[in-house]
């Protein structure tokens, strides 16, 4: 039952929903099984693993490190490398606005309903994920270990050593990297795969997703005492967070 559709923007597409089946029982049964599996899994987890509860809140004792919940640790990781207004407000705000804008940039209906839309979609996704991960990990390591004189490390301290004002290292350089990485990715994907709008958007979403995952993993599993880079097995319990109840 394919239909040819004519849209306002003169895009001629074929929509092919294929054979239809009744929601009862075909979909309802899948939903029931899925819900039960999740309920069972969560119940098992609730029986086996206790939710954390540590010492009563104490404003006098700052834990070291003091960490946000895991889904904000990507942002907390950014906080180590740039101005707090950038890491805490402007970057997440811009990310949400850009995410919401996706369908107003990629307006073609072609490719709906197909994983990765085109044969190039999956290779582009894989390349973008690796490209982003290499950049992000590289920059985190660079900012951690780049010698900046007198035992200091990092891009920003090094720039200050050469007489630049703090804003250059804290605001300008991070903005340059955060613009250059997705831009260069889009250029590479366009040249190498002759990518269309959808495929470039796939590359850029993958940039967002891979950055989020890599930064969250680093913030969760690789940041220990004084937020220094450590191996996951060296993290242990933060100082000032005693007793699990």
């Amino acid at each position: 039952m394919a239909r040819v559709l004519q849209h306002e923007e003169e895009e001629r597409v074929i929509e092919d929903p294929g054979e239809r089946v009744h929601v009862w029982p075909h979909l309802v049964s899948i939903e029931l099984v899925g819900a039960l599996i999740y309920l069972l899994a969560l119940s098992l987890m609730a029986i086996l693993i206790r939710a954390p509860l540590v010492d009563l809140a104490n404003p006098e004792v700052t834990p070291n490190p003091a960490k946000a919940p895991w889904y904000f640790l990507g942002l907390q990781e950014l906080l180590l490398h740039m101005h707090p207004a950038l890491a805490g407000v402007i970057v997440p705000g811009a990310v949400l606005i850009l995410l919401a804008a996706i369908p107003y940039i990629d307006r073609s209906r072609v490719g709906t309903g197909i994983w990765f839309s085109t044969p190039k979609g999956l290779p582009i996704t894989k390349f973008s994920a690796v490209y982003t991960a290499v950049w992000v990990i590289g920059l985190v390591l660079l900012d951690e270990f780049l010698p900046a004189g007198e035992g200091a490390h990092g891009i920003s301290p090094l720039l200050e050593l050469y007489g630049f004002p703090p804003a250059v290292g804290d605001i300008f350089v991070p903005l340059v990297f955060m613009t250059f990485i997705p831009w260069s990715l889009a250029v590479i994907v366009k040249r190498r795969w002759n990518a269309n709008t959808r495929e470039i958007i796939i590359a850029l979403y993958t940039f967002f997703l891979a950055s989020f995952v890599v930064l969250t993993v680093i913030g969760t599993a690789f940041r220990g005492h004084s937020m220094q880079l450590v191996w996951p097995w060296e993290i242990g319990t933060p100082e000032g967070v005693m007793g699990h109840y």
């Binding site: 946000a68 919940p69 967070v241």
Partner: peptide, 18 residues
Amino acid sequence: DQLAYWAITVGAQMGGST
């Protein structure tokens, strides 16, 4: 608890840097 209190401290500082 300590986890909650200091996670919120970090979060509020981020919001406060707007």
